[in-house]
């Protein structure tokens, strides 16, 4: 990745991190309801892969930890925040909520709340691309725990059988809700599980965006060239609990600290400082500027937007 791209991506990653932290605060203030699954710690996964792909052109689908993926595809953070606030101006007009961000014009095909549910949908999007003859690829971001659903195996089989242009990204954050992977999954290396379907796969560090980017570039090229699906496993960690109702009793604070030593944002930041294209002062100034943007534009927009009209309750059920 070029230095200027890395500098741009650092800014995007900081925005994603501060956006999510601000969601946390809004949730505590009860401005955001329902379930809220936050992304801090895993940023290099989404940004590394999408830098290698074509955001807004390639189709992206994911689970319920979906705010950042939508924003990276091109969604306006204001609309995503308004969705979390349940407002009519939200990306899904306040009908979806945190777990169901959609932005079809940017080819963000949605957040889905059944673990493993997006797998076959991603394959179907791949099938549609195959029929229509475009050069897009279908990218499915899911966590490690989704791989214990039947949809994982049913989808991998079909994706390989029909040679679909699908890139499966496994963000292995090592916990399925509150159960550690080695307590739920017989084979903890997820990339090994796909080999039985004859699908190309790789595993790499998910904290270092340079590593993610290099692996993702090869994977994207492979899929786009028509060779069939690819499965990339990224080893990562979510700093917060599974959702806001999670006290993280299943893991130690020491383990969390260890992962924070390899923070994906700090890795990029320090590398840019070492390369002398960024100073720590510039970084802090950028953080402040982003916080101001989130407060003065994103939150303001969400706060001031109208709620959906109750008379429109049944709108959008049928076409």
């Amino acid at each position: 990745m070029k230095l200027e791209d890395k500098k741009r991506v650092l800014r995007e990653m900081v925005l994603a991190r501060r956006f999510e932290e601000r969601c946390y605060q809004a949730y505590i203030e009860r401005k955001i309801g329902g379930f809220l699954h936050l992304y801090p710690g895993q940023e290099a996964c989404c940004f590394g892969v999408m830098e290698a792909a074509r955001p807004g052109h390639d189709y992206v689908i994911t689970g319920y930890r979906d705010h950042v993926h939508a924003i990276k595809c091109g969604s306006d953070p204001k609309e995503v925040m308004a969705e979390l606030y349940g407002k009519e101006t939200g990306s899904s007009k306040g009908r979806g909520g945190s777990m169901h961000i959609f932005d079809v014009k940017h080819r963000f095909m949605g957040g889905y709340a059944l673990v493993g549910g997006p797998f076959p949908l991603a394959a179907g999007i791949g099938k549609g691309i195959q029929l229509k003859g475009g050069d897009e690829i279908s990218i499915c971001f899911l966590g490690d725990a989704a791989n214990n659903q039947g949809t994982f195996h049913e989808t991998l089989n079909m994706a390989a059988l029909y040679k679909l242009p699908c890139l499966f990204i496994c963000e292995n954050n090592q916990y399925g809700i509150g159960t550690a992977i080695d307590r739920s999954t017989a084979v903890v290396d997820q990339f090994k599980r796909v080999s039985s379907y004859g699908i190309e796969s790789a595993q790499c560090d998910g904290q270092d965006i340079d590593v993610v980017y290099e692996h993702a570039r090869k994977a994207v090229d492979y899929v786009r060239s028509g060779k069939g699906p690819f499965f990339l496993e990224l080893m990562t960690y979510r700093y917060r609990g599974h959702s806001m109702s999670d006290s993280r009793a299943y893991r130690s604070r020491e383990e969390e600290e260890l992962w924070k030593q390899r923070d994906p944002i700090f890795i990029v930041r320090d590398r840019l400082i070492d390369a002398k294209v960024l100073t720590m002062d510039e970084y802090h100034a950028m953080e402040k500027e982003i916080d101001a943007y989130i407060e003065n534009e994103v939150i303001k927009f969400a706060e001031e937007s109208p709620e959906p009209d109750v008379k429109d309750l049944e709108k959008y059920v049928f076409a």
């Binding site: 797998f119 394959a123 999007i125 549609g128 029929l131 949809t151």
Partner: peptide, 22 residues
């Protein structure tokens, strides 16, 4: 398309394809 015996999987595949015009 002859599908494998994976009803949930191929139904989901059809739904995903329908999202983009199929």
């Amino acid at each position: 398309i002859d599908t494998p015996i994976s009803e949930n999987g191929f139904s989901g595949l059809a739904i995903g394809a329908s999202f983009i015009g199929v």
